[in-house]
């Protein structure tokens, strides 16, 4: 009971989100019970959600420090293109196990390097994150174009496709990777010293620096971490589509921002939870998949996502204002007493 109370106090926002998620899930289930609730569809969602969810985690890491990462999608594609160049070689195809393993390592490593570039410019040069990542977004996209000349790279070892389409006991690998990433992110951000520093930087960088924390290093690591997350997403994307191309996943950018904000992360940094982002991703997934099943025009789906975003924020504000008022009243009553 006590645990429940503390959860309710500390995770009020997440509970509301979860309520919305359950509500939407039920609504979709009522609209098309045979399709939406079918095992096949639930599995399809498990295949679809991770690549977007990892993008959202990558975005969230940057937003927690008060920054923004507009280069997540092009960073992921450039990484998978570099890895794709390796995996399309005859060596990789002849030694699929090594080829795939090295390919995945290359993707994540290149993504980490792109994150490093962002991080250095943001933390050490001191340019605003939004602007740096706007520049690197163009840069990565351009590099991908230079390598591929606009086409797509294909011819990867068939084993690689298993990553994105295989399943362990009916549970897709993709969702397993996603869950591991969520758990690691949770412990890193909400349970580690570094995580606490990240939140502090997001709240007030100057104060954090003067309390003896190497803020620059903290921020640099955040962007590298962000890079690793979108690198993993890049692995899943290129594996699911068994190819690599510059514009894969370009629609995830603004959706990731939406998910992060919907999840309750403050856009100015310093507050937000992994759970919130994960639930928000699930909400967007359910809306998109559910409405798609009943054949709603894609633009209507975008619109509904936008309405949900604005509505949640209005609700959040109104309920916050109400609870403030209540607190004031209680305090006034106590003072009178």
């Amino acid at each position: 009971m006590k645990i429940w109370k503390s959860i309710r106090e500390n995770y009020q926002n997440e509970l509301i989100l979860f309520g919305i998620f359950v509500g939407l899930f039920i609504v979709m289930g009522i609209i098309s019970p045979d399709k939406f609730l079918s095992a096949g569809n639930l599995q399809t969602m498990c295949y679809q959600m991770p690549e977007f969810g990892l993008m959202a985690l990558a975005m969230m890491a940057a937003v927690l420090t008060g920054g923004m990462n507009l280069s997540i999608c092009t960073g992921a594609t450039v990484a998978s293109i570099v890895a794709g160049c390796f995996m399309a070689t005859t060596f990789a195809n002849e030694n699929p196990a090594i080829g795939v393993f090295v390919g995945i390592i290359i993707t994540v490593a290149v993504a980490a390097v792109t994150g490093l570039l962002n991080g250095v410019l943001i933390a050490y040069v001191g340019v605003t994150a939004m602007l740096v990542t706007l520049g690197t977004k163009l840069l990565f996209e351009g590099l991908g174009l230079v390598v591929t000349k606009g086409g797509s790279l294909a011819g990867f070892p068939p084993l690689f496709l298993k990553v994105g389409s295989g399943a362990l006991l009916g549970i897709p690998y993709t969702i397993l990777i996603y869950i591991v990433a969520i758990v690691i992110t949770y412990f890193l951000f909400e349970r580690s010293v570094w995580g606490t520093q990240v939140y502090m930087v997001g709240c007030n960088e100057t104060a954090t620096r003067f309390s003896g924390i190497a803020t620059r290093r903290t921020v640099l690591l955040v962007y590298i971490y962000s890079g690793i997350m979108y690198g993993l997403s890049g692995v899943l994307i290129s594996s699911r589509y068994c190819s690599a191309k510059t514009d894969y996943g370009s629609s995830y950018l603004m959706q990731a921002v939406t998910a992060v904000v919907l999840g309750g992360t403050s856009i100015s940094g310093g507050s937000g939870t992994v759970a919130g982002t994960v639930i928000a991703v699930a909400i967007i997934q359910v809306v998109s998949n559910g409405l798609n099943l009943v054949g709603v025009n894609r633009y209507m789906i975008n619109m509904i996502t936008g309405i949900i975003l604005i509505a949640v924020l209005i609700v959040r504000y109104v309920s916050g204002a109400l609870s403030d008022k209540k607190k004031i009243r209680e305090r006034a009553a106590r003072a009178r007493a």
Binding site: V257, I267, N302, M303, L309, L313
Partner: peptide, 19 residues
């Protein structure tokens, strides 16, 4: 409603553009 500007305008952008 004290919605952060970047979020409010992202929302209106999505809605208006889609409409």
């Amino acid at each position: 409603f004290h919605i952060p500007p970047i979020v409010a305008t992202l929302g209106t952008q999505t809605i208006v553009m889609a409409a």
